[in-house]
């Protein structure tokens, strides 16, 4: 798509079919609403912190919907929208940010690794997991999500290199949102683009408009197909923008200009897919389109209501859960502390 949502063909990539275009838009509508709701909950003190991905929905949704059922997603902490698009319970996505536990979902259920807070460290997990799957004869690819700042980490380098040497089917989707908290991209790298980094590892690098859900989907789909076929891993740089602050406790007015934000808000990924859906009549005639878009909005409201309800509860996490899963069995000294804490709580 161009910035106004008009279709642009590309000889290398296959555009998503109409049903998939609708899926992409619906997931972004839900993702946008989820980001807003979680931000509100953070301001109300219902969440300890929330890193919003408003503005980046196309990059996350386009990447995740390119995955097959058996594939794995390796998200970072700003990838809540990717997780709910993958089917993880939205309230469980927020467990980390509410502070109830570190990971709120069972990674095996939706084949989503825990949200990773230390940057780029989960990228080598994706490499190892796909290596293991191939050894077991399973056709499993992985999408490892990272940001522009994370590409400066040594772990990104090691993961790219291992993936390329072992030829494992991993696509590293770099959401270049231009800001690593307060540090701009020009202070992260001297590379012409982040996609260029792929060249040094002997793998393909793709540079895509990260605010174009259809384009991200097309590029990630192609990269995944090539990787599955033995063509090796790839870096996909999705150029997008973090419209909101880093988290609810950030102060972006100290480091960036409002006009820059306004520039990107004009290029909002949701406006573009909606324009395409309307212009091409993907959802039907004008009346039908309005009806379907309204139903997407209603779906998003339902998700927001569910999140509000689940986060409003006064349930407190069980202190005994601190002890149960540190090891496969509770060792003697830890068991002593467990009993001491239980006794302490009885006295209160």
């Amino acid at each position: 798509m161009d910035r106004h949502g008009r279709r642009v063909e590309h000889p290398l990539f296959t555009a998503p079919d109409p049903a998939r275009l609708a899926d992409l838009h619906r997931a972004m509508v839900i993702g946008r609403r989820f980001n807003q709701q979680a931000g509100t909950l953070a301001r109300q003190g219902r969440l300890a912190v929330y890193p919003s991905s408003t503005g980046q929905e196309a990059a996350q949704v386009g990447g995740v919907l390119a995955l097959s059922e058996q594939d794995w997603l390796f998200p970072s902490y700003r990838d809540s929208v990717a997780l709910i698009t993958r089917g993880v319970d939205p309230a469980q996505v927020l467990t980390l940010f509410r502070g109830d536990w570190h990971s709120g979902y069972d990674p095996r259920r939706h084949r989503c690794a825990p949200q990773c807070t230390p940057l780029a460290t989960n990228a080598s997990h994706a490499v190892g997991l796909t290596y293991a799957a191939r050894r077991k004869g399973h056709d499993v690819a992985a999408l490892a999500l990272m940001g522009d700042g994370a590409t400066s980490e040594g772990d990104a380098h090691e993961a790219y290199n291992f993936a390329a040497v072992w030829n494992t089917p991993v696509v590293f989707l770099v959401q270049n949102n231009h800001w690593a908290i307060s540090v701009p991209l020009r202070r992260q790298t001297a590379a012409p683009t982040l996609a260029h980094k792929a060249i040094g590892y002997g793998m393909r690098g793709y540079h895509v408009d990260g605010n174009d859900a259809a384009a991200v989907h097309a590029v990630v789909s192609r990269a995944l197909a090539e990787a599955r076929a033995g063509g090796g891993p790839a870096i996909v740089e999705a150029v997008t923008y973090r419209v909101d602050p880093h988290t609810n406790s950030d102060a972006p007015q100290r480091y960036r200009d409002e006009s820059e934000v306004a520039y990107w808000v004009e290029r909002d990924p949701l406006l573009r897919t909606e324009a395409l859906l309307r212009a091409e009549g993907v959802l039907g005639d004008a009346e039908e389109t309005d009806r379907v878009l309204a139903s997407f909005g209603a779906d998003a409201e339902r998700v927001a209501a569910l999140v509000r309800e689940r986060m409003a509860g006064e349930d407190a996490p069980d202190p005994d859960s601190l002890f149960t899963d540190v090891y496969s069995t509770v060792p003697p000294l830890l068991d002593r502390q467990r009993r001491e804490l239980a006794a302490e709580l009885r006295e209160v």
């Binding site: 990674p107 080598s124 997990h125 293991a132 799957a133 040594g154 772990d155 290199n161």
Partner: peptide, 13 residues
């Protein structure tokens, strides 16, 4: 770091 990181991924599978 890559050696241990990939081992973690392998163990996950």
């Amino acid at each position: 770091s890559g050696i241990v990181g990939t081992a973690i991924g392998m163990a996950m599978y």
